[in-house]
Amino acid sequence: MIQVKDLTKDYGPRRAIDKLNFSISKGDVVGFLGPNGAGKSTTMKIITGFMAPSHGNASVAGFDVFENPLEVKKRIGYLPEIPPVYADMYVQDYLRYVAALKQVPKEKIEGSVKNAIEKTNLGDVQKRLIHHLSKGFKQRVGIAQAIVSDPEVLILDEPTVGLDPKQVAEIRELIKSLKGQHTIILSTHILPEVEATCEKVIIINKGRIVAEDSIQNLSTMEQGQIRLHVRLRKSVEDMQNVLSGMGSVIGVHSGASAKEWSIDLKGSEEAVENVSSLLVGKGYGLLELTPAKRDLEDVFLKLTYGQQEKGGPA
């Protein structure tokens, strides 16, 4: 659906994105992840035909965004960082205007506006001035605006930024409900958002792609490795020594006190069982034993900031 090839954008001497290559197939929900200033918005703006790349090209549904921008724009719904709403228009009128602008046939405009209002739960405010709406509602009007023409591709740039937790949850629900009908690209620097809504992640840092994979694969990047958090009743001075006899232990990190440790294991559940029986057998008073998966946050930090894992419980 979306093909990006060697995409480069220079702002004067500053290179915002550097030779990006990725492709997104129809129906995918892709999270576009990166720290602030990584080039997320720039990439999205290029895909929407808002600006031209310095080098390389991007195409949507087989149409090049620079050669054939109108065809691309017909197929795209875009929510920029700041929702592009006119404060002096009524919600309904605004959506009608956008639908007409996106070349929705005249007889279908009323239907699509109604549909978009329903999907985004704007029924109560549809006859109010956008000026009088809260930020959360404005954001929803922004999303309604993006989906009103029922586009094949939906590009959402940080859709939940600046919203309260309830609104964030609502917007995520909304995005989930849009799955399957559209190909969605979602840019964000909020990790749980990606985990909650996306199937595939592209992590970008300093204008380059540092990882591109499914969430499942990213979070279990180092296969067969398990980290255990243990909490004991008695203090243990040197856990390394206690566990020294076990071949499956590859690392031991101390926690907040001598009663808390995290243990990295190689192998399967058997290794976990061995550790627990050893600790119980030695009479340390095992209170807690939790296996922790490496989560997306670790992966993200490691990839974007090059930060090594710190010892101790996460």
Binding site: T48, G49, F50, L70, E71, K73, K74, I76, Y78, P80, E81, I82, P84, V85, Y86, A87, V98, L101, K102, Q103, Q145
Partner: peptide
């Protein structure tokens, strides 16, 4: 200023 220009520039109009 209000960034509604983004909407115009990403709509299928020349």
């Amino acid at each position: 200023k209000l960034r509604t220009f983004d909407l115009l520039l990403t709509s299928p109009v020349t």
